[in-house]
Simulated scan of single mutants.
Amino acid sequence: MSTQKEVQKEAGSVGENPVRLDEEKAAQIIDALNTDLADAYVLYHQLHKHHWNVAGAEHRDIHVFLQEAYEEIELAADELAERAQAIGGVPHASMATLSENATVEPEDEDVYDIRTSLSNDLEMYGDIIESYRQHIELAEGLGDYATAEMLREHLEDLEEHTHVIDHYLEDDTLKVDASN
């Protein structure tokens, strides 16, 4: 570990930025981005958990989907953090801070059937989607169109994931109809 003791930029601080976004406006957007960042890491870990534990007839397809989903979430988290830094902020980085600032509640440590797990994922995605919509409005209202556009692109990915999960949660089409 480094022995350097001089803090370069204090967590929670907002400074000037090269994109000339007013510091007060930037502070509001950085708070929103840090919330989205924290939520992204909670979702990332939950999707990863389900990826590890998926079982059943559709194991491979769901296993692959969940990996693609958590990898996209990780990329989005990186963009959120870099944008917060670019507009003068300090992105949350410690697990304690991320956990403390997340607005979504992770599933517990137990392993559930994949239908329950995906239902829990769908619920978390829905909460995050609602938050993104609010943060897009906030960024646009404060004149930060670049952040709004970035969030809009992430929102499309989140909505696509919910669409896929919703399909996985449909009634099993391979069941035999006992009434025939």
Rank of each mutant, 00 (worst) to 15 (best):
A55H: 13
G141C: 03
V19K: 04
L47P: 00
A57Y: 07
D171M: 05
D157C: 05
G88N: 05
R20H: 13
K9E: 11
D61N: 15
I87M: 02
E71F: 03
W52E: 12
E6D: 12
A26V: 01
E130C: 07
K25C: 04
A69D: 09
D172G: 02
H163V: 09
V19E: 05
Q67S: 06
S179L: 02
V90M: 07
S2I: 14
A40G: 09
T173Q: 08
K175G: 04
I165R: 02
H161V: 12
D166F: 03
Y44Q: 14
I87A: 04
G126N: 05
A81H: 00
H167Y: 09
A69Q: 11
D39Y: 07
E100W: 08
Q134D: 15
E24H: 10
E149W: 03
A26M: 02
L80A: 15
D31I: 06
Q67G: 06
A84Y: 01
D172R: 05
H63K: 04
L155K: 04
A76Q: 14
D31L: 02
D36Y: 00
E6K: 08
H167V: 13
L118R: 04
E170Q: 09
E23M: 10
Q46Y: 08
M95W: 12
L47K: 08
D121Q: 06
P106Y: 08
L80K: 05
A69V: 12
D144I: 05
P18Y: 15
R133W: 04
A139M: 02
E160S: 07
I165C: 03
Q67M: 03
H59F: 15
A40F: 01
E153H: 05
E72P: 01
G12M: 02
S99E: 14
T103F: 01
Y132E: 13
A55M: 09
P18H: 14
I165F: 02
M1C: 11
V64Y: 05
I128K: 02
D110C: 03
A146T: 10
Q134F: 03
Q4C: 12
G89Q: 02
S131Q: 08
Y44P: 00
D127H: 09
N120K: 12
Q4L: 12
Y145S: 09
E109T: 15
A55R: 13
E82I: 07
Y125T: 13
E105A: 12
R115P: 00
T116F: 08
L43V: 07
L158A: 06
L118V: 12
E6Q: 14
Y112M: 10
L151S: 02
D36E: 08
E100R: 12
V111T: 11
I62D: 10
D177P: 00
V111S: 05
E72Y: 08
T116S: 10
E10Q: 13
E82A: 10
G126L: 00
V7W: 01
D22F: 03
I87R: 01
K9P: 01
A96H: 12
A93I: 15
L21Y: 01
L98E: 13
Y70R: 10
V14P: 01
R60A: 15
E109C: 04
Y41I: 14
H163I: 06
E123R: 13
K9M: 13
A102V: 10
Y44M: 10
I30L: 00
L158D: 04
Y70T: 15
Q134G: 14
A69M: 04
D172A: 07
S2Q: 09
M150V: 14
E107Q: 12
I30M: 00
N53E: 13
H167W: 09
D61P: 01
